[in-house]
Write a protein that binds this DNA or RNA. Structure first.
Length: 588
RNA sequence: GCCCACAUAGCUCAGUGGUAGAGCGCAUUCUUGGUAAGAAUGAGGUCCCGAGUUCAAUCCUCGGUGUGGGCUCCA
């Protein structure tokens, strides 16, 4: 019975696609085996939008190899043979795969009460140890494409041998495949690295790998983000501090970074001493706290620090603005009593959702990371910290998942993830409870009774790294930033040269109201200037010719290109003022 | 760090064992315009760096660096 895909429920569609994609992985494995008989098969699951299969081969696949493998797969699909499964004994399976250490390892992991099945889709010519879950026949794989190759460690462990992975995508129809490929192309256009170049926001130079240079346009955006943060800090009672960048190694030994984090740090030798460039702000915050005596009456103290951090990230992991070697965070450390934790975290999550709303982020994902094996602090304290965080999350509207063992060594944490243009998730906000820092630095306060007690430290960042946040924001908006963030907010376009002076007077007025505006005085036709402004994603163009200059008005064209109206300049400034001060988010 | 690929003008890219080209951008001139590209002319390159092969290397080989896609990592 052929399946009518369109009539399936959403869940059934997903399940069917899963089966088909996994089936496609089998066909891929068969084809690779045909072309490279010595290839050893490992695993081939279905994944979001497609599938992969990992092979142990003598020579890595190159992109060129994909074409011939694809052809072989097409042949197999054309034959339209049935998928079948047969149950065998462990001993029999073992004898079949005796030369394949990976499959043997998988087999060894199958418990004795589970069935062991071999799957085939070619009347037994090709068999693969597999627990099953396939479509009926190879012809059910209606549309597929091999996408890329890469190395991948066996079982994801760096110490294991590197296998060669082939990624593919598969769909129930050619149309869906095409749609998927077009979507990917569209997403690629939103890549913040491309937009960053086109809009002259930032660039990279090989002399400072993975370290962005921000051009004037990009710097405007960053500064607007900082001032947005500072506004929130006023509202939520934070105090901003400024701390050094380079510290004697003694500090890093005390904080634990020297033993736990030095692989990611930059060190400098001066005057026979060793110094480390800070990868985090927390030790500095601890010193700052300790520089004065504190009473319970002062707590909580919230120190915000936009200090520049440097982390040596391994060569293969950097990525545009999203993973860099130097960055700043909207970082803050809250020093409080144990009883204040609950309120502090709630208030932080409120501030976080308030800020994310401004950027139109609604597809974030929360995780709660619980105690790792290697940790400091008593189980009692961990219990309390974990339940506190979990209770807060349960009482909120956030969907979250528990990540066992993923907490920081000093405490559990809540992280916020947001996807980029092609669906890769990046961690932005984070809030972490820390019991270790107060211990190491003896961070205390005087309580009501007069005795000295250790405080608790909460590390938190809303946007996370400003660089990464900007990267993700650019991809969300495709470069069409809201007015308040746009490097150039208004461009005045004279229809003919004789209107330049009038345009200049309008721009001067806008500048008096502190808008970023300029006249496009280039030697181009009006149409070309509009196009340029459009491509630069300038929110508003104002176009002035005889009509406008005669009755002291302007013609407005917003970058979405639809609303064109002639209005009075002061009215326009009112509209702009409104849009700017509300930091209103318009996704054009 | 690991696997693969890539590196040519400011950007996107073509090309060749005999030291290079297009489009866009930029400059100059002409053009003075009504809501997404007016025209002509011109400037601009140590073909990533270093070594090797060769009469000759931007092109072939090796090494390095950077970037991209993954893997791993991300206290």
């Amino acid at each position: 019975m052929p399946i009518n895909f369109d009539k399936l429920s959403i869940q059934d569609k997903k399940a069917y696609l899963d089966k088909m994609r996994h089936s496609a992985a089998h066909v891929l494995a068969e084809s690779v085996k045909k072309i490279y008989p010595s290839a050893k098969l490992t695993i081939g699951p279905s994944i979001e939008d497609g599938f992969f299969y990992d092979f142990d081969v003598a020579e890595p696949f190159t992109p060129n190899d994909l074409a011939s493998i694809e052809k072989e797969m097409e042949k197999s699909i054309k034959k339209d043979t049935y998928f079948s499964e047969r149950e065998v004994t462990k001993e029999f399976a073992k004898s079949l795969i005796k030369d394949n250490p990976y499959k043997l390892e998988i087999l060894a992991g199958i418990s004795s009460n589970e069935k062991i099945t071999l799957c085939s889709h070619s009347n037994g010519d090709f068999e693969d140890l597999c627990r099953g879950g396939h479509v009926e026949k190879t012809g059910d794989i209606k549309a597929f494409k091999l996408m890329s190759t890469s190395g991948a460690y066996w079982r994801g462990k760096e110490s294991n041998p590197m296998l060669q992975r082939i990624y593919g995508t598969a769909w129930e129809s050619k149309k869906s495949l095409k749609k998927f490929l077009i979507q990917r192309e569209e997403a690629a256009k939103r890549d913040h690295r491309t937009i960053g170049r086109d809009l002259q926001l930032f660039y990279f130079d090989a002399v400072a790998p993975a370290s962005p240079f921000f051009l004037p346009n990009g710097t405007v955006i960053l500064n607007e983000l900082y001032s947005f943060m500072r506004d929130l800090y006023k509202k939520y009672n934070y105090d901003e501090v400024v701390t050094p960048e380079i510290f004697n190694t003694d500090l890093w030994k005390k904080s634990g970074h020297y033993t736990n984090y030095s692989d990611s740090m930059y060190f400098i030798n001066i005057d026979d001493f060793e110094y480390g460039v800070k990868p985090m702000n927390c030790p500095a915050a601890a010193l700052l706290y300790k520089s004065q005596f504190h009473s319970y009456r002062e707590l909580p103290l919230r120190f915000a620090d936009f200090g520049r951090l440097h982390r040596y990230e391994k060569s293969g992991v950097t990525h545009g603005l999203n993973r860099v070697r130097t960055f700043t965070q909207d970082d803050a450390h809250i020093f409080c009593t144990i009883d204040q934790i609950d309120n502090e975290i709630k208030s932080f999550l409120n501030m976080l959702s308030e800020s994310y709303k401004v950027f139109g982020f609604n597809n974030m994902r929360f995780t709660l990371s619980l105690r790792p094996e290697k940790r400091v602090g008593s189980d009692n304290l961990w219990d309390r910290a974990e339940t506190t965080l979990q209770k807060i999350l349960d009482g909120s509207t956030c969907d979250y998942s528990l990540e066992k063992g993923e907490g920081a060594f000093y405490g559990p944490k809540i992280d916020v993830f947001v996807p980029d243009a092609i669906g890769r998730e990046w961690q932005l906000g984070t809030v972490q409870l820390d019991f270790s820092l107060p211990e190491r630095f003896e961070l205390e306060y005087t309580e009501e009774s007069g005795s000295r007690v250790k405080c608790v430290v909460i590390h938190r960042a809303m946007l996370g790294s400003m660089e990464r946040f900007l990267g993700v924001l650019i991809e969300h908006t495709a470069g069409s930033l809201p007015l308040w963030l746009s490097p150039l907010q208004v461009v005045a376009i004279p229809i003919a040269d004789r209107h330049r002076q009038y345009c200049k007077s309008v721009v001067d007025k806008l500048k008096l109201s502190k808008f970023r505006a300029r006249v496009d005085g280039s030697n181009e036709r009006m149409n070309a200037k509009i196009r340029t402004a459009q491509l630069q994603k300038v929110p508003y163009m104002i176009i002035c010719g005889d009509k406008e200059s005669q009755n002291n008005s302007i013609s407005i064209r917003s970058r979405d290109g639809i609303n064109q109206e002639i209005i009075n300049i002061d009215d326009f400034i009112d509209v702009l003022n409104d849009e700017r001060s509300n930091r209103s988010y318009s996704h054009r």
